[in-house]
Design a protein around this nucleic acid. Structure first.
Length: 714
RNA sequence: GCCAGCGUAGCUCAGUGGUAGAGCAAUAGUUUUGUAAACUAUCGGUCGUCGGUUCAAUCCCGACCGCUGGCUCCA
């Protein structure tokens, strides 16, 4: 069975807690960032531990692998070491995570990597001492008393520093559940375990980084210092891990992108997160679009094109405004010069009223989302006021998603059930104002080109359409040699109905059943995750693993049974009634930015011939005129057949020309000298594979053309 | 946005409280070559930006911008 149902893994490092604020407005395709390494040689299901640990049951804990126990134990040793240096440290959570462990600590001293050596030295002492991890079961009263005395998460009692986080954690332990400590040396921690037997069982470890982290992941809670480290059974395993990190660094898309001249990010003039596609990167973009267009055409899609802007009304109707205004670029407001002053006054009034309203609401409603909604509603009203007063002629937004435009295309013409399914496809350009700390090379950007399409269909057609979309994913995976992939099937949770999710319990159930059925029937590897759906329907995130086992979330596929209604989209059904279509949002190739970023790493820049920006380079042995003419003829034949071929005829030593081409990752080099010319042949050299021998010119060209046409894997 | 680290030529990196170097790349010559690098010369930097300390700042301090690792967020 390919499926692993892991509903008990509520979340993992790649899917941090969802927004507390209006998660019910996830309209379009999630471009979520996921870049985590899989723990080597360990099982691939249980390695993830929540960054903001919700309570794990004791059963969950018992399932910890040996490596996780080592890492969790290393976290205790880390705390022990920190306390020896800074006895006042207060500890919160210290779990194992995908590639190691961390411990969240509150400490006036700002720990920097310079401190690592000192901390590691203390850790080594504790490991050398080979203290046993002793489990002590205590009563709740005892635990509370120990926390109050500062003993928990400490080496001694600390009269001036109660273990406040441990105290808080105690409150979360349900009545009746056993409360236990783990003790190594003098260090006692509130902990359910399990651990390795002795500190000496931690074979190898290293501290890796320090970061800020909010207590329980709550932005409004105290900010702690999170010390990350990694630990392994032995040094060999750890060395292997760091070797893998090195390899990943070597394949980093930013590095290879620069080496190959694929893209540039001009933060000074264009802006952060807005990549420029250089000529060679554009080749990749266009090859992918070509692939998508062919595939979609064959699957019955039609193409549309839409502007990058839309009026405010569009996003009010879709529901993106006012809730998601902050994630969109601020609107372009056209204001008459005379009205600027009046507008400014109105904005001041708005700010005043909003601030008063906030204060009034502070005690009335503890639910922040509600409060913000009120304020945002006010903004909407004010916006209308401004508009009514003629102060604003227009307000336009850069689109952050394509769906509303596509909905308007659907609305532009009347539709009969006979028109459905209608599959509108577009490589749409979107702009999202991602927070500055989020930007990352091509992986997280502010301008993105999405392999988008919206399928409008009837309920009866849904299963077939959904299956076809999945088939398309599989087809792509095959082309790119992706052997490992997984779909995360996110469903709703009953308690969220009417709040987080549209209150259509039956439609939810029905749609989810349909989706699940298709997934199972297609034998697709998926996990089901409760309570992470979009507000309008279940969704599927697609995770793939690159050649070196790095995970990427590159696409989503969502079912929408709500938004088409907001736009009043209908079709005329057989019974002459108007019905609202279902809408499937899908983007198998995600965005160009992320997908190409992924491909760069997956192939380490060594693209298959059909994708390679430099497909063929004809290299002459010298600059003999007849030889150059022979070479030019070959280049010209190749180019006539659409092959990206260039000639290198200069007087540089052939070895230098080859080295140059290898460095640029030219896929195929045709090296020719007098010998080849006389035989009407070429010597074929493949990037990274070396000389593969001479063959007749026509044969070589035919091979190249065929490989490209078939999009062969290498 | 938050915490930490980083920012020297197109790239990879040295370096010092007294206004900067190397290799590669680029350019110009020479070289006429059988599968990963021929030789010589030249060009190239307001040392991220702006302030401060100092006789003097690339170096010390501060702010800002950007990048990176995390956190938060992610339509």
């Amino acid at each position: 069975m390919g499926q692993t149902h892991t509903a008990e893994i509520e979340h993992d490092a790649t899917h941090p807690q969802k927004s507390k604020l209006a998660p019910d407005f996830q309209i379009c395709l999630n471009d979520s960032r996921t870049l985590t390494f899989f723990a080597m040689h360990e099982n691939t299901n249980a390695e993830t531990t929540p960054p903001n640990p919700e309570r794990k049951t004791l059963d969950d804990r018992a399932k910890m692998t040996e490596l996780e126990r080592i890492r969790h134990s290393a976290a205790h040793v880390l705390a022990t070491a920190i306390l020896r240096i800074w006895p006042d440290a207060q500890f919160a959570y210290g779990p194992p995570v995908e590639n190691g462990f961390y411990y969240d600590v509150e400490l006036p001293h700002r720990i920097s990597p310079e401190d690592f050596e000192k901390i590691e030295a203390e850790m080594k002492k504790e490991i050398k001492a080979n203290n046993p991890f002793e489990k002590l079961t205590v009563t709740r009263e005892q635990a509370i008393a120990d926390a109050n005395s500062g003993r928990l998460g400490g080496l001694t009692e600390r009269p001036n520093g109660a273990s406040k986080f441990k105290l808080d954690l105690l409150k979360q332990i349900p009545e009746g559940e056993a409360i236990s400590y783990f003790k190594n040396g003098d260090f006692i921690d509130l902990c359910a375990g399990p651990h390795v037997m002795r500190t000496g069982n931690i074979g190898a470890f290293k501290l890796t980084s320090v970061a800020a982290a909010y207590y329980k992941g709550d932005e409004k809670g105290p900010q702690l210092q999170r010390i990350y480290g990694t630990a392994f059974k032995n040094k060999t395993a750890m060395d292997e891990y760091f070797k893998m990190l090195e390899e990943a660094k070597r394949r980093d898309h930013r590095k290879i992108g620069a080496e190959m001249g694929l893209f540039a990010i001009d933060t000074e003039f264009v802006g952060p997160g807005m990549p420029l596609w250089l000529p060679k990167g554009t080749v990749l973009v266009e090859e992918l679009e070509k692939l998508a267009k062919e595939t979609e055409f064959a699957a019955g899609y039609v193409r549309v094109r839409t502007p990058h802007l839309a009026r405010e009304k569009m996003y009010k109707t879709s529901g993106h405004l006012p809730y998601y205004a902050e994630s969109m670029f601020p609107p372009m407001t056209m204001v008459e010069e005379d009205n600027k002053k009046r507008l400014h006054e109105l904005e001041q009034q708005e700010a005043d009223i909003a601030s008063k309203l906030r204060n009034q609401l502070k005690n009335l409603t503890p639910d922040l989302a509600e409060k913000d909604k009120e304020v945002l509603m006010l903004r909407t009203v004010m916006g209308k006021l401004q508009f009514d007063q003629g102060l604003l002629s227009e307000r336009y937004y850069l689109k952050a998603m394509n769906c509303p435009h596509h909905h308007r295309i659907f609305a532009a013409e009347p539709h009969s059930y006979r028109d459905l399914p209608l599959r509108l496809a577009e490589y749409g350009t979107c702009y999202r104002y991602e927070q500055s700390g989020e930007l990352f090379g091509l992986m997280r950007v502010r301008s993105l080109n999405m392999n988008d399409a919206h399928i409008y269909c009837t309920e009866e057609q849904f299963a077939d359409e959904f299956r076809a979309v999945n088939d398309m994913y599989l087809k792509y995976f095959k082309i790119f040699g992706l052997e490992k992939y997984q779909m995360r099937f996110s469903t709703h949770a009953a308690e969220g109905l009417g709040k987080k999710y549209v209150n259509e319990p039956e439609l939810w159930k029905k749609t989810e059943d349909m989706v699940r059925k298709v997934l199972i029937e297609s034998g697709i590897n998926y996990v089901e995750v409760a309570n992470e759906a979009a507000f309008y329907g279940p969704k599927i995130d697609v995770q793939v693993w690159s050649a070196i086992g790095r995970e990427f979330t590159i696409a989503t596929n969502q079912v929408d049974f709500a938004v088409p209604a907001k736009f009043g989209l209908t079709y005329r059904d057989k019974d002459n009634s108007n019905k609202t279509p279902l809408c499937i949002h899908r983007a198998p190739l995600g965005t160009h930015e992320r997908f190409i970023g992924f491909l760069i790493e997956h192939y380490a820049g060594n693209f298959p011939l059909w994708l390679a920006p430099d497909q063929v380079r004809v290299i002459t042995l010298n600059d003999d005129e007849a030889l150059i003419n022979y070479a030019k003829g070959i280049v010209s034949e190749l180019r006539t057949q659409g092959v990206r071929a260039e000639g290198e005829y200069g007087t540089d030593p052939m070895k230098a020309k080859i080295a140059n081409a290898e460095q640029l990752r030219v896929h195929t080099m045709l090296v020719i000298g007098a010998r080849d010319m006389e035989a009407g042949a070429v010597s074929v050299r493949l990037h990274g594979k070396g000389n593969v021998g001479a063959k007749p010119k026509a044969e070589a060209i035919a091979d190249i053309v065929a490989s490209i046409k078939e999009r062969r894997a290498n």
